[in-house]
């Protein structure tokens, strides 16, 4: 396989996170440079996420890191991996975070920094709710997360 910018950079990221991963993050699988899964727990005692582990799925295009990866939460029965309750996370796992959009992304972001941002997004949340229009969005959305133009209506959440 030709070593593109994407695979080169991902292999370096992988070497680093295999070595040390920040607290609350576990690399589940990274068999190639197109898709990785990482388990995430919230570090403080936020009652919304107590004793829960969430699973993130990263999809990388060959334009990474010039373009953001596609990052979603995935649900699983065994081991139990629910989709975290959050006003910016749809029940199908799609995350509304400007950092992951074409306009908010920067190539200095990386897998680890995305995970840490998501961790703090959950830590800071106190609302046990889904985004407005969740049912309709989940029922009708056929777009890929990165193509959706979210309206970042409330950056405080």
């Amino acid at each position: 396989m030709a070593t593109t910018l994407a695979t080169k950079r991902l292999s370096k990221e992988l070497a680093k996170i295999t070595d040390i991963m920040p607290d609350g993050l576990t690399l589940v699988s990274a068999t190639d440079f197109t898709s990785w899964t990482i388990d995430l727990t919230v570090l403080d005692a936020n009652p919304l996420y107590l004793n829960q582990t969430f699973r993130l799925k990263f999809l990388f295009s060959d334009k990474y890191p010039m373009e953001p990866p596609e990052v979603v939460f995935v649900s699983l029965h065994e081991p139990p991996r629910p989709i975290p309750m959050h006003p910016h996370i749809y029940s199908n796992g799609i995350i509304c975070l400007d950092l992951l959009g074409q306009n908010g992304w920067s190539p200095v972001q990386n897998v680890q920094s995305i995970c840490v941002s998501l961790q703090s997004m959950l830590t800071g949340n106190s609302k046990n709710e889904r985004p407005e229009g969740d049912t309709a969005f989940v029922a009708t959305n056929r777009q890929r997360p990165r193509d959706i133009n979210f309206y970042y209506h409330d950056d405080k959440v």
């Binding site: 950079r9 370096k12 990221e13 190539p107």
Partner: peptide, 12 residues
């Protein structure tokens, strides 16, 4: 590799 020598975009 010291951090000051690394490009934060390619990590090279």
């Amino acid at each position: 590799v010291p951090d000051w020598a690394i490009d934060d975009i390619t990590f090279s």
